[in-house]
Simulated assay, not measured.
Amino acid sequence: MLSNKLIFCVSVTLALLVVILLATLSPLPHRKPPPKPWLALSLYIQQPQTASMPNTRTSAPQDAGALIFHRVLTEEPKNTSRVIGKAQGFILPVEQFAHSGFNIIYLTFDTREYSGSVSIKAKNSGSGRTDELSVVGGTGSFAFVRGIVVLTQKDDRDTNLVVPYHIKLHLKYPNRSKSIPG
């Protein structure tokens, strides 16, 4: 009888020691750090290659009803640079539709670092060489982002070639510490 009580007390004591040791010596769980509130990206929208002359200027007629495009996004200005996604858009280049809700550009990313899309509202037809556009949302890695986009294009005057559009994204993530009332 006494030995059963002794065995029970020793077993309980050993079990408590094991639990205490596991609690103090176990590694902490791996948690992803919270995303930074701001993200800056620099990338390039490549121009289409034509069969007759590679990378020459191609433009829509001035009286075009809508400009619909599908382009490749790269890390660097060269068209052989690593592809990180695509740029698609629908622009109505008519002055009375300059503030239309249809003027949207979607940047879709498919990389190890980022997966998702960014929606950009175009304010005008892009007649200038530098435009500042608004980010109105995103999905995946860019869920609910807001921010600005600076879109720039320069000509290569020596060869009359068009270099790709340079895009600088300045994104702000929402404050995720707030809870949604409900």
Rank of each mutant, 00 (worst) to 15 (best):
L2Y: 11
S3P: 05
S3D: 13
F8A: 04
F8G: 04
S11L: 05
V12C: 10
L16G: 10
V18M: 03
V18R: 01
V18I: 06
V19I: 14
I20S: 08
I20Q: 07
A23V: 05
S26C: 06
L28P: 04
R31N: 11
P35L: 00
P35A: 05
K36E: 14
P37D: 12
Q47Y: 09
Q49D: 11
A51K: 15
T58Y: 03
S59W: 10
A60T: 12
P61Q: 13
P61W: 11
L67R: 13
L67C: 06
I68H: 15
L73M: 05
E75K: 15
E76Q: 15
K78F: 09
R82P: 06
V83G: 04
V83M: 02
V83I: 10
V83K: 15
I84L: 01
I84C: 00
G85F: 00
G85C: 00
K86V: 08
I91W: 08
V94A: 14
Q96G: 12
F102M: 11
I105N: 04
I105G: 00
L107S: 08
T108W: 04
S115G: 14
K123L: 09
G126V: 07
R129Y: 12
D131M: 06
L133V: 12
L133T: 12
G140Y: 13
G140W: 11
R146T: 15
I148E: 02
T152W: 01
Q153A: 14
Q153N: 15
D155C: 07
D155H: 09
D156I: 11
R157G: 13
R157K: 15
T159L: 04
L161N: 10
L161Q: 03
P164W: 00
P164M: 10
Y165Q: 14
H166G: 09
K168H: 10
L169E: 04
L169V: 09
L169Y: 01
H170N: 05
K172C: 02
P174H: 11
S179D: 14
